[in-house]
């Protein structure tokens, strides 16, 4: 290092000015984060936090071994969970497709009135987690599978709608024009020019959403919307930890299977 002649400047990644700026950004970010941390933990009872390893050991020892025979009580909730996810996805799909066509710039009937409305619907549905939808629907419709299906469907509209309308906006206009040139009506243009171009994407999106919905429908029961979550809620409330372990195993297995199915289907689609 010392042998370097002073006339040759050492290469550096950034100019001094940039280095200083970067340093300032770091300082401000760190200060901001530690401030938010302080605000967040204002009311935290640290005794509980320092107690955590003991609690973990305690819960861990209570959870073992899993209540294997409990699995026989879980087949029906499992079937309900699958139904909530599948029927919810289908219902969401049915509602999302028209919304997506109304939101896409090239297929919407009106860009000034219908399009913003459809986009608002998509954003509204996307911002609210399905668990919150379920919370609302359980209060309105009473506990049960119906609230779960509707919660999944309402959340899926935004997801499917957003990805589908982006796909519709990116289609090849030449194909649509070719169909129009044959004298096809607007409905025929839609069916032969637009739909075939987005159908594979739609199938991919639906399967993707179904996978997410399976995950989400396993916990919807925590707020009373049916499925495995209902059992989880009651097992947690009665502190029946071996049953909780069994439930977690079933949930993990369900998620793993749905992931495998999704991967297989997507492989075939693409």
């Amino acid at each position: 290092m010392n042998s370097k002649t002073p006339s040759v400047p050492v290469w550096r990644k950034r100019t001094s000015r940039n280095e200083l700026m970067l340093f300032a950004v770091w300082v401000v970010t760190l200060a901001f984060v530690s401030w938010t941390f302080q605000v967040m933990t204002n009311d935290t009872i640290w005794a509980f936090v320092s107690d955590a390893p003991k609690q973990m050991q305690d819960i861990g020892s209570r959870m073992m071994p899993p209540a294997w025979s409990f699995v026989h009580e879980l087949w029906w909730p499992l079937w309900e969970t699958i139904n909530i996810a599948t029927l919810g996805t289908l219902l969401g799909l049915v509602m999302a497709v028209p919304v997506a066509f109304m939101a896409a710039r090239n297929t919407t009937p009106s860009t000034t009135l219908v399009r913003p409305l459809a986009l608002l619907l998509i954003v509204g549905s996307r911002s609210i987690n399905s668990l919150i939808w379920a919370l609302l629907l359980v209060a309105i419709l009473g506990p049960g599978v119906l609230a779960g299906i509707l919660a999944i469907a309402l959340r899926s509209i935004g997801f499917i709608g957003k990805l589908l309308y982006e796909a519709i906006e990116e289609i090849d206009a030449a194909q649509v024009e070719a169909i129009e040139a044959t004298g096809a009506s607007s409905a025929q243009t839609m069916a032969w020019g637009v739909v075939p171009q987005v159908a594979p994407t739609l199938a991919g999106i639906s399967v993707f959403r179904w996978d997410i919905n399976i995950r989400e429908s396993t916990v919807l029961g925590l707020v009373g919307a049916g499925g495995l979550g209902v059992k989880l809620e009651s097992a947690l409330n009665t502190l029946a930890w071996p049953k909780v372990t069994m439930l977690l195993l079933v949930i993990l297995a369900t998620v793993a299977v749905s992931e495998w199915v999704t991967a297989k289907v997507r492989e075939r689609l693409i």
């Binding site: 933990t41 935290t44 009872i45 936090v49 668990l131 995950r215 916990v219 925590l222 949930i251």
Partner: peptide
């Protein structure tokens, strides 16, 4: 990635107590 946030939260609440921590 497999464990749902809600399920993780249930356990962490049981260990660390209620609240944003």
């Amino acid at each position: 990635r497999t464990l749902n946030e809600i399920i993780v939260a249930i356990f962490l609440v049981a260990m660390f107590g209620f609240g944003p921590f």
